[in-house]
Nucleic acid binder design. Structure first.
Lengths: 340, 340
DNA sequence: TTGTAGGCGTTATCAA
DNA sequence: TTGATAACGCCTACAA
């Protein structure tokens, strides 16, 4: 397997008997080239299997690599996968490529990946920030003009664009839905740590909705969970209260999963449940899981559009785009409270 | 927001009063540098916020970009997301970055993405091939030494490494499991087109297992489906046969979903079901869905290891690595056939 | 319609 | 221990 050097523009030029610049012109449909020359060049390109070197091109042309760097906590998570899909879809036409890294929710890992992306001179940087991260180190990049966009949660310590779900409004919709079905004691199981942006936004929606309905806010009905197991425990604890909730709002996927598992194991088919974020198979359960569905692909698309507009010269102040959520009733959120 | 030019090696050098090469030496711990010089250089680097330009470095040094290109049908699919996670995890230590593109199962889109990756001079290329794709166009790359690894399904028209799941063995395990629980009429719902690699491998396992158990192969029990809806229809058709199956083996996720939905809608809790590939929430159903679970992260990891060994000079013949599957009984696969 | 000179930011080579 | 020069592959600017 002879590892022959890849042909360059000069190789093609030599073969045809023209200058490198002429070959370049043909390939980029740049200046004028005679039909005959063009044809000969194209033939040589095919024959040699020449492919222009994008690294060299980018270096000369833009000083930026034609990539968008995206950092997510975990690629395997379909939510972030959809975000990536949305981005890729929106940047493809612009001949931009997606560079993907994962942080594992660890701010240090995140910074390492960011560094490697910056070293590559990505055209724009998109980050789903890790919990408790500090993004002050990105200030310099921001001020040097790099489009920086936070997704799902805003970054901290640096002013930048952001695209987030309608957390507060979505939670409002879910909780109001439960209230409309007669519930007045509604448990809330949220993210850990409770300082997390999405947690705060959603809990805010929960609280405001109760208040608007004239229902007192009871801290005893609020629990934390960062895993299905812990959420399951929280569900049991809430349901064992002297005045237990008749409905639950699980503010994230893991909490929903935990609640489902526990309610199913304990044969509690009387507790109403609405979850934030949709789950596959959620409609096959009995009852189906009512959810506030997010639109992760749209998050990605909006982020990409924001980035592209920045690249196109939009120098207006940093802004936050909000992507709407959608209530999907499937049964669990429409259960009535027990007659008692 | 003044868009100041990024500092270069020369800028740092000028500030310190040394040559660019000296700065380069410090940063790469290359040749000898006096402690005093090193210190001054590092200070200037920090002060200016200098970050070496990887594009320029790669161009000078290797003529290859330090990236691994991965092309999958759809990033949002958690299966492929896990593959990507496995790869990223394995290449991170080697200072390689993941370049991710999606093909949408369209061979032409796939080729476009591949081209753009080749233009970037990726260090290695990994592809989950689209249906009916033809990879002859990659022969030249292969012979020029580019590590090329197909994942989940082998490529066609080019000899290359591959990493696949134990499709035949896994299906054997699932079908044998149903037989062990007393079933003799077992339906099979497979991928479309039926020429698909995974489809063929799995159907092979199905057929061989029946044969080994002395059960005649009945083509009437075999159906195709590429979506949950179609799969659902197939389920109804099979169950309406004069001699309907008492158990089903759904050879992929979509088929499993469709079967679940339809069985649930038709209140058919008497039909045993084993699916190939795990589903989230599968254990919350009643009964839980028994599956042959794949290990996508391991697929990615193996692919990465294969690529790295090629990069390290492994010039042995192309090989195919097989990643084992695992039977997870959860109830649906253990239902007995009706007494009749 | 085509070619030449120079440079993007880095490192290899050789000399000082 | 350090520096000057050339080169990686391509494109911009200008000239022919």
């Amino acid at each position: 397997m002879a590892t022959s050097r890849r042909p360059t523009l000069a190789d093609v030029a030599e073969r045809v008997g023209v200058s490198a610049k002429t070959v370049s012109r043909v390939l980029n449909s740049d200046g004028p080239v005679s039909a005959a020359t063009r044809e000969k060049v194209m033939a040589a390109v095919t024959e040699l299997g020449f492919r222009p070197n994008l690294m060299a091109r980018n270096m000369r042309v833009g000083a930026r690599d034609s990539t968008i760097g995206l950092i997510v906590p975990q690629i395997a998570n379909p939510f972030f996968g959809s975000v990536a899909d949305g981005i890729e879809d929106a940047i493809r036409d612009r001949n931009l490529t997606l560079l993907l890294g994962s942080s594992d929710e660890d701010p240090e890992k995140e910074q390492v990946v960011v560094s490697s992306f910056l070293a590559r001179r990505v055209t724009a940087l998109m980050i789903v920030p890790s919990v408790d991260g500090d993004h002050r180190y990105l200030r310099r990049e921001r001020s040097s003009g790099l489009p920086l966009i936070f997704i799902d949660r805003p970054g901290s310590g640096v002013t930048a664009d952001a695209v987030v779900s309608a957390n507060t409004e979505g939670t409002h919709d879910g909780v109001a839905h439960l209230i409309a079905h007669g519930h007045r004691r509604i448990g809330f199981i949220g993210d850990v740590p409770s300082s997390l942006y999405t947690r705060k936004q959603r809990q805010r929606g929960y609280r405001a909705t109760l208040q608007a309905a004239g229902i007192p806010y009871d801290p005893a009905l609020v629990a934390d969970a960062h895993s299905p197991t812990v959420a399951g425990g929280a569900v049991r604890r809430l349901l064992a209260l002297p005045q237990p909730p008749t409905a639950l709002f699980t503010a994230n996927n893991f909490a929903s999963l935990g609640a489902l598992t526990t309610l199913s194991a304990d044969r509690r088919k009387d507790v109403a449940l609405v979850g934030f974020d949709d789950l596959p198979l959620a409609d096959l359960l009995e009852p189906g899981l009512s959810v506030i569905a997010q639109d992760p692909a749209m998050l990605g698309r909006e982020a990409a559009l924001l980035a592209l507009s920045r690249l196109d010269g939009d120098r207006t102040a940093a802004r936050t785009a909000t992507v709407p959520t959608r209530l999907i009733p499937r049964g669990s959120g429409e259960l009535p409270p027990p007659p008692g």
